[in-house]
Design a protein around this nucleic acid. Sequence first.
DNA 1: TGCGTTAGCTACAGTCTTGTATCTTATCGT
DNA 2: ACGATAAGATACAAGACTGTAGCTAACGCA
Lengths: 198, 198
Amino acid sequence: MAEGRTRRRGKDLLDAIHTAAVEEAAASGPGRLTMDAIAKRAATARTTLYRRWSDPVDLLLDALAALHPVEQPAPGADDLRGDLIASLRLMVDWGFSPAGRAVMALLADPARDPAVVEALWERVFDRRGGTFTQTVLRHYAANGIVDPDRLTPVVLDIGEAMVAKRILDTGEAPDDDYLAAVVDQAILPALALPHRDR
Amino acid sequence: MAEGRTRRRGKDLLDAIHTAAVEEAAASGPGRLTMDAIAKRAATARTTLYRRWSDPVDLLLDALAALHPVEQPAPGADDLRGDLIASLRLMVDWGFSPAGRAVMALLADPARDPAVVEALWERVFDRRGGTFTQTVLRHYAANGIVDPDRLTPVVLDIGEAMVAKRILDTGEAPDDDYLAAVVDQAILPALALPHRDR
DNA sequence: TGCGTTAGCTACAGTCTTGTATCTTATCGT
DNA sequence: ACGATAAGATACAAGACTGTAGCTAACGCA
């Protein structure tokens, strides 16, 4: 932040490197991620990176873990449908952030290292309370509006799966009509609740 | 095939190159796909590749289009649930074939070129009659067992989406129990048909 | 204020990939 | 059997990335 400085240290520098790593991964994919490119984007020297990390993916995992956590859905009192749509909207927004793109690319990499994926779950996802629609569904189950027995792993993941596949297929962010269709035609029926057709 | 030959030509060579390209893409991901690696795997010279293709992705698209089409579900007369599970099993098998891995990686590449994705759809998918559960669902709709009005784009894609996300998450092939859970807990409820709980 | 830490810079050898050029010769069609 | 085609092999310069080394000097702390 300070203008007079010519040399960043500690957190300032770390933040810059983390941001650069995630942006670079989001732009090039983990397959093309190189120390060189991260260093250039962060405007630092490669040697600085090698002092802390041994390879680009190691760095990227650190960066993803350090980044601001994903926004959490805040379920209201009495609008299950609206809250589900809102939580999917949050997911879409995250999916199109650099971090989201980087994570998707890491997961879809055919050469992915199971250890890397495990580290991703431990260091990035497990800190969060759960996935997007999951938070909402558990809230309404706790309030007696949704049958808790219906909340199987499959059902808890319907919304996320539909949105993820849609993003993969189209490469674009689904609009609210699509999210509403997912809620009305897939999630709510699985909860055995009344829902609008089509 | 003939043993005496020391030099492949035409279709023999082309098949070898196509196979090598898909296997290489499945092993390394499109980001790390190089002419060099394809040539080595196909045991041919790089110059041979450059005579026909200008870059690795171009070659890969040709290879995917040339490969044997995906096996199609063959719905029976009266077992919607079983046929849905079987069609998802076909999808899982395809997803773990080299071609399936290559396609997933292409779609998830953050640096993906929209033109490449479009070419993929045109040259690889559009030839097929539709997706996996889609074929089954349309069959049973035509036979009056499923309400055709329920077969919205969202509903037609539930199975594929759930399986795709599961593969992304775990990196492993879902077992039959999981596929059955998807059918019972997500697809059948969306069709408003009786289904087994959990 | 002085000292330890470490960011930033430059350099280097080694490897991999690219795209092109050149030459030989196996293969196929006639 | 001949001739056109194209596979296969080798070479090359250019560029990118790696991993390491060594130096300088800015920064933070006591």
